[in-house]
Amino acid sequence: MTHDASSTRTGNAALVPEAATATASAAAAAREQFSRRHRFTPLEVLPWLAAIGAYFAFPDYLALGSQILATIIFALSVDLLIGYTGIVTLGHAALFGTGAYTAGLLAANGWGDPVSGLLVAALAAAVVGLVSGALILRTHGLTQLMQTLVVAALLMEVANKAGHYTGGGDGLQGMIVWPVFGLFRFDMFGKTAYLYSLAVLFVCWVLMRTIVHSAFGRSLMGIRENVARMHAIGTPVERRKLTAYTLSAALAGISGALIAQTTSFVGLGVLSLERSGSILIMLIIGGVGQLYGAFIGVPLYMIAQDRFATIDPVFWYFWIGLFMVLLVLFARGGVLGILTRLVKRDGGTS
């Protein structure tokens, strides 16, 4: 009875030279499959073509356009947390606002260089993210959600109370933003603002794409899917979540700073619950955890809002609400999920 164990040992192909080469090529095929995963596909050019096309097609809407581009960065930042790591936040405006006020205060106090302003804003938001994240990530579930809210509310109160510096409820006045690299002046048509935002978005997208395809990114997905397993393979789960939180905070800070610089204004709204909530809606509409959801959800939402909200704000919220309900009921992956399924189906039948 004990001898029939050998039946499986014959499956040990590595002992047979001929089979060894066969398995070596199987291993090579497997490696190939994994290394292909982070390669660029032609479809990934689409958002950039669209953004450049929009620049020429809608010269009157460049202000809205740069807001959209900057907000996509915010959505990417939220996606890194919610979509990839599985940390739900209702207070990401805290980091967005930190970036906005940092860039705003710099420009209002004599340092108007946009690029270094962005970097300082990213750093400030990262620090706030690191500290608040260390507290927030200690808790779980509903408590954690409340904590994210509390941090944003707290910062809003600080910004409000520090009216001497921030302008409080009236907003921060007197920002003077210098030309980008000392060369490209922010013009009244918003051309520079648009192209500057596009360039910053591009850099952030490269960053985000690198992160989610990295070993680190895979481990974030592991944490989202099965945290018990990640603990059991020795992942320092809390530390890794905090890294994700900090990186996400930096991206949110860049987004906030970009909007501050391109509009030359920062109001308390950058820290508001509405800001935290609407970015969630945009991301869910576009599709969570698929990298490009942000590129679809944000323009859809912001263009629709621009068209409809001025006509009838009540109606706007009704439609967006209805749209959300339908998406949640019938299309879990958002618009991007629907598109992916359509493309796959086409590919299957042809």
Binding site: R37, S214, A215, P236
Partner: peptide
């Protein structure tokens, strides 16, 4: 592979594509 990457201390690397970990 995920377990081995973690064991080798490579799973915290933000810059290196996961697929390159041959």
């Amino acid at each position: 592979g995920l377990a081995i990457t973690e064991r080798d201390g490579l799973a915290g690397n933000v810059w290196r594509p996961a697929g390159r970990n041959r």
